[in-house]
């Protein structure tokens, strides 16, 4: 059947399936082995090392870039840190200056207050003294007036009684009591 279906074309090959034509096997196997060896050598000597080196080089480049980026990031972090520190320093300095100024002002204020207090105390002491003096002189005047008045009254009531010293004594007694 096979030869009939194949017609004249496959007349040279007894079996219908060329795959089972064992007379061509050595040929195919030989050329296959040659091909495989050539491909293997090409791959092993040229292609694979080249691709591997390109890949590892790319890996290296990427790793380097990443490392550089990491470094830059670190630097940025450092800069931020420094900026923050400077800011904090400036703030602390400002606070210190404010505190100093405050203390100085307080000192001045205290001194002024003290001085004012002293002045006020001095002035009030003087006023006190003068008030005392005035009061004392007023008392004296009152005494004198009272004595005079009493003498006049006594003279008017008892013209006989001329004893001024007795009147003085009596007035003094009354003023004290």
């Amino acid at each position: 059947m096979a030869t009939e279906a194949q017609g004249a074309e496959a007349a040279g090959n007894a079996p219908g399936m060329p795959q089972l034509d064992f007379s061509t096997f050595p040929n195919q196997i030989f050329w296959l082995l040659v091909t495989l060896v050539v491909i293997y050598l090409v791959l092993n000597k040229v292609a694979l090392p080249r691709i591997a080196s390109v890949l590892s080089e790319r890996q290296g480049t990427i790793a380097n870039d990443l490392a550089a980026a990491e470094e830059l990031k670190g630097k940025a972090g450092e800069a931020e840190e420094a900026y923050k520190k400077a800011l904090a320093d400036a703030r602390a300095e400002a606070n210190r200056i404010i505190a100093d100024a405050k203390a100085e002002i307080q000192k001045d204020l205290d001194a002024a207050t003290e001085k004012a207090d002293a002045e006020i105390a001095a002035k009030s002491a003087e006023s006190e003294k003068r008030i005392g003096e005035i009061r004392a002189s007023a008392m004296e005047n009152v005494e004198a007036v009272a004595k005079d008045t009493a003498i006049e009254v006594v003279r008017a009531v008892l013209p006989a009684a001329e004893d001024a010293s007795a009147v003085d004594k009596a007035v003094d007694q009354r003023l004290k009591g």
Partner: peptide
């Protein structure tokens, strides 16, 4: 003839297929 395409043929004529052909 679906099998004709699989036939091993010498490139430069002749019909004997030796291992080196």
């Amino acid at each position: 003839d679906p099998m004709g395409q699989f036939v091993v043929e010498p490139l430069f004529g002749g019909d004997h297929v030796a291992w080196y052909t």
